[in-house]
């Protein structure tokens, strides 16, 4: 844990792997999209509309997966008080919100032609909407405090409270009568999708996962650089204040 938690080492390792992850994301997305749009067959019931699945289902998985990461990073931040964990949690949230939004909108676009409605308040759809608002609430809460440490702590507690929503989303289709159908891939007895549709789905899911890790690294690095910038500027301002007080001129040449 502590081996990776050192920001300097994190910056060095992440800089080395970042380009490779970026290109891997692009490659997997291209392969996944070709499989989803050209290779996968139409469904016997849903026809070509089934192609929405290759976006909707991976986005839904990512919504859950990112939330699990957000909660884990929040827990690590709360327990070990490590700034890198706090940054990681905060930078995961916008990505999770984006995947959840994609899941909700594509689900709506799929529901209208197949079910006959854009939206219903069944347990599955409602619990996913709750997760979307958890992401938004987390982002708002973190930024609601003047003191960033307190904001991070309050956000972490909200993130961990929201964990109870994960099993509710996953099992909502088994516990209650829902309009949404039960799981097709992660279920007892194996997937109920033929291989020619399962394969594009899995490639898209891996592509989305790598996309998430790539953007997460970019955002964490960006946040660390931003913190460094802030402390540099603060240090510069301190110099000014000291030199002003002593009536001298600053040693470095600052642009006014």
């Amino acid at each position: 844990m502590n081996r990776f938690a050192n920001p300097t080492r994190f910056m060095r390792i992440s800089a080395a792997v970042l380009p490779a992850i970026g290109w891997l994301t692009a490659l997997l997305l291209v392969v996944g999209l070709v499989l989803a749009l050209f290779v996968a067959p139409p469904d016997y019931q849903q026809g070509e509309s089934v192609r929405i699945m290759f976006i909707h289902v991976p986005a839904a998985w990512m919504a859950l997966f990112v939330y699990a990461n957000l909660a884990l990073a929040s827990a690590a931040g709360l327990i070990w008080r490590h700034p890198l964990a706090e940054i990681a949690a905060q930078e995961a949230a916008p990505l999770g919100a984006a995947f959840t939004l994609v899941c909700l909108v594509t689900g709506s676009l799929w529901g209208q032609p197949m079910w006959g409605t854009w939206w219903v308040w069944d347990a599955r759809l409602t619990s996913v909407l709750v997760m979307f608002f958890l992401y938004l609430g987390y982002i708002a809460l973190v930024h609601a405090f003047d003191d960033p440490t307190r904001g991070a702590r309050a956000g972490a507690i909200l993130a961990m409270v929201g964990v109870v929503n994960l099993p509710i989303i996953k099992f909502s289709v088994d516990w209650w009568n829902t309009l949404h159908q039960p799981a097709s891939v992660f279920r007892l007895g194996g997937p109920t999708i033929v291989l020619s549709m399962l394969l594009p789905l899995l490639v898209m899911a891996i592509a989305f996962t790598i996309l998430f890790f790539w953007l997460w690294l970019v955002r964490i690095r960006s946040a660390i650089v931003a913190r460094k910038l802030r402390s540099l500027r603060l240090a510069g301002a301190d110099d000014f204040a000291q030199l002003d007080a002593s009536g001298g001129k600053p040693a470095g040449s600052y642009p006014s």
Binding site: P42, D43, Q46, M114, G116, T117, V120, Q181, A183
Partner: peptide, 10 residues
Amino acid sequence: LAKHDEKYMP
């Protein structure tokens, strides 16, 4: 509203 099952196949 139509409810579809969890099976997908050509």
